[in-house]
Amino acid sequence: MLDAMTTMNISLPDALKCFVDEQVNERGYGTCSEYVRELIRRDQQRQQLRALLLDGAASGMTTPVNGDYFESLRTRVRNARK
């Protein structure tokens, strides 16, 4: 199922409009809208990653990891594939 689309008009200086047009042509986007949607998706992903990193940094210290820890992860992955 496709998401509903809404139109949003933006104003760009000539230099940015030329840059967008170049990116569309050079990178194989069908339209300027496709290029802008991709930029917005990447920014969303960047913000989500940043939030996860900040959450991890704020979560406090954990116990040190060693070879046994990584082996237990490998075992869990192997068992999950079965």
Rank of each mutant, 00 (worst) to 15 (best):
P13F: 11
E26W: 00
R78Q: 15
L12W: 15
R42V: 00
F19I: 01
Y29C: 01
A57N: 10
D55Y: 04
S11Q: 13
R41S: 09
L73T: 00
E22G: 05
R46L: 05
V20R: 04
G60D: 06
A58F: 09
D21Y: 01
L49N: 15
L39K: 04
N25H: 13
Q44T: 11
E71L: 14
S72Y: 04
N79L: 09
R27G: 01
L52K: 12
D21G: 03
C32S: 06
R81Q: 14
T63L: 13
R76Q: 08
Q48L: 08
N9P: 03
R76F: 12
G56L: 12
D14V: 12
E34T: 00
L73M: 05
A51Y: 10
K82N: 05
A51Q: 12
M1Y: 00
L39G: 06
V24P: 01
C18G: 08
Q44C: 04
L16C: 04
G56R: 13
S59H: 11
M5I: 03
V24I: 15
G60T: 02
Q48H: 10
Q23E: 06
G60V: 00
V24F: 01
Q44W: 11
R78W: 12
F70Y: 14
R76H: 09
D3Q: 11
R37E: 15
C18S: 12
L12D: 10
D55V: 08
R37M: 07
F70R: 06
L73F: 05
G56Y: 03
D43G: 11
L53H: 14
R74Y: 04
R50A: 08
S72D: 05
L2T: 03
K82V: 10
T7V: 09
D3I: 12
G60Y: 00
Q47K: 14
A51L: 05
S59L: 14
E22V: 06
V65H: 02
L39E: 02
L39T: 09
A80V: 02
S33D: 14
A51D: 10
G56D: 03
D68H: 03
S59N: 07
L52I: 03
A51R: 15
N66S: 10
L54N: 15
Q47P: 03
Q44F: 09
V36E: 00
E22K: 09
D68T: 13
E22I: 14
M61Q: 07
D68G: 06
V77L: 13
R41H: 07
L53F: 11
D3K: 07
C32W: 00
G56N: 14
R37I: 02
R76K: 13
G30N: 02
R41I: 01
L12C: 11
N25V: 11
V65Y: 02
Q47Y: 14
T7I: 10
M8Q: 02
G67I: 15
R37F: 08
S59W: 06
K17H: 03
R50G: 09
S33G: 08
I10T: 05
L2W: 00
Q44G: 12
L2M: 07
G30I: 00
S72M: 06
D3M: 06
S33F: 00
M1I: 04
N66W: 10
P64S: 10
R27H: 12
L52M: 14
Q45L: 11
C18K: 08
E22F: 08
E38M: 02
L2S: 11
